[in-house]
Design a protein around this nucleic acid. Sequence first.
DNA 1: AGAATAGTGTCTGTCAGACAGTATCGC
DNA 2: GCGATACTGTCTGACAGACACTATTCT
Lengths: 221, 221
Amino acid sequence: MIRKLYPLVLVDVALFSVADKRLQVLLVRRAQEPEAGRWALPGGALKPEEDHDLEAAARRELRRKVDLDIPHVEEVGTVSGPDRDPRGWSISVLFYALLPRDQFHAVVKDKVEAIEWVDVAKPRRRLAFDHGVQLAKALQALREKIARKALPLHLMPERFTLTALQQTCEAILDQPLEKSAFRRHLRGSTDLIDLGEQERERGRQRPAQYYRARPGFTFSK
Amino acid sequence: MIRKLYPLVLVDVALFSVADKRLQVLLVRRAQEPEAGRWALPGGALKPEEDHDLEAAARRELRRKVDLDIPHVEEVGTVSGPDRDPRGWSISVLFYALLPRDQFHAVVKDKVEAIEWVDVAKPRRRLAFDHGVQLAKALQALREKIARKALPLHLMPERFTLTALQQTCEAILDQPLEKSAFRRHLRGSTDLIDLGEQERERGRQRPAQYYRARPGFTFSK
DNA sequence: AGAATAGTGTCTGTCAGACAGTATCGC
DNA sequence: GCGATACTGTCTGACAGACACTATTCT
């Protein structure tokens, strides 16, 4: 049995997005055994011949399974053990990534029957393998980062208002934030650029300023 | 070439300790190729037949290479790629661990020529593979945790004074801390237990209270 | 008394939450 | 003017750094 010498090395990605003020994660329905027909995080086996490193493998799997090119993926950690995959001793290296929903669209591709954006808040059907645990880990990592004042600019469209940014943070943390404290904090950020343009489409109210992310901003803290 | 299908899976451990108010890390001198004779972090290949998971592999390697039984190891992350190890495409999963120096002693064992505790502050000879980078990563992870007010109780002996705990934090962060702020923070901790005993051995000064860690304390935040 | 370290009290500036206030649009 | 949302000012309490002060031991 090969798995007694060499573990299966997998990458899995929790791809988050915000739609309608709710944090969602992309799930794919597996077309192949094991766990065919069950919903899972997109991911797959490392291919040493193709991949420059594990992060590159994660990005490649996103391209292959849902045709998305995500530049920034962030490592969360690993889960490992002999029984978590029926194919034998395995390691999954977990990543998360952020997608601005209006710019890119995930589509069904290789070895996937269907894809779906699922609210992370809602009770969910059981996922394939231990992907339920992995999703919880990725969500916790993302929330801790936002709670430490990192700005989820990777989730925002080209232009956005400060209110929209606040609503995105609220969707991630699943709790309301104080507007004045939130904005006071933003004043210290060098990653936001005031475009000087105003939102004009919503009518019958004061228009908001548009901002964009500074090119090469860092998703840190 | 097997490595085109199956990457080499390794675990490496940065084992930290504090001696004489300086943060140190345990290095081993490799007895075998590759990189024989060079200093490295203790670690080695995952053994799927023996290891329950990657964390267990890290603890097993600490037993095998330096005869230490460390209950608590913490995952930092991974480094990976085709060129970081001459044996081919490899993944290293990095852990760090904390050792109270007076209680246990590392000894030379399997595949190791020598061991040495090295100050992390001092400029060091080049380490094997990319272990210099890994050490920097582990150190940063430890420092961030202590900066977030986690208490390094795993580094302390059975009984210790608050001054000793402060000096340990200062050694890790490599910067002085304010005594009164430090102690004010400690008052909120449920992980410290006042033993009601006093330090008696140092003479000609006010004796300090001894504390111990609460059994089952969490190294968190 | 003096030296040395343990431990406390207090001042002060910073910062975040809370909330009310003002600004600016369409109708 | 009114409704609605954008944006700002200010009060207040929590907390952390700085630093001086008190406490207790041995010599």
